[in-house]
């Protein structure tokens, strides 16, 4: 499991009062090690349809200036939805799954 290393858990006097959390703080939590397979991008087959991005449950398709630029392997859980949804170019998918080397 991707338990991140918290140097020291805070005591009750140091924690913010109540069940309050900073927004987006989960970004530091790694779920990438859940994967048994990883998606690999093949740019030459990519038509930039962004279907992989819109269907990713883990916000793990990186996009810059509205263009797909690769995967966020820190969070990608390797579900493979991006591969299924990828229309590719002339029948060749722009994403393939490869076994994780452990």
């Amino acid at each position: 499991m991707g338990e991140i290393k918290v140097a020291r858990k805070k005591g009750w006097k140091e924690l913010p009062e109540g069940d309050y959390l900073e927004p987006g703080s989960a970004a530091v939590f790694e779920t990438g090690d859940w994967r048994s397979e990883r998606p690999v991008w093949i740019p030459e087959n990519c038509i930039q349809c962004l279907f992989c991005w819109v269907y990713c449950p883990d916000s793990s398709v990186k996009v810059k200036d509205s263009l797909m630029t690769g995967f966020d392997y820190k969070h990608c859980k390797g579900c493979g939805i991006c591969v299924t949804e990828c229309p590719g170019k002339k029948g060749n998918k722009a994403i393939k799954m490869e076994a994780e080397k452990k």
Partner: peptide
Amino acid sequence: PKHWLLDVDHPFTLGAIDLQDYYFEHKRQ
């Protein structure tokens, strides 16, 4: 209030799940 949901310029999460490692501290508060 210090934190309030409608203060949308300062978003935060309230009501997270607190397991064995934090629930007790929050109850102690």
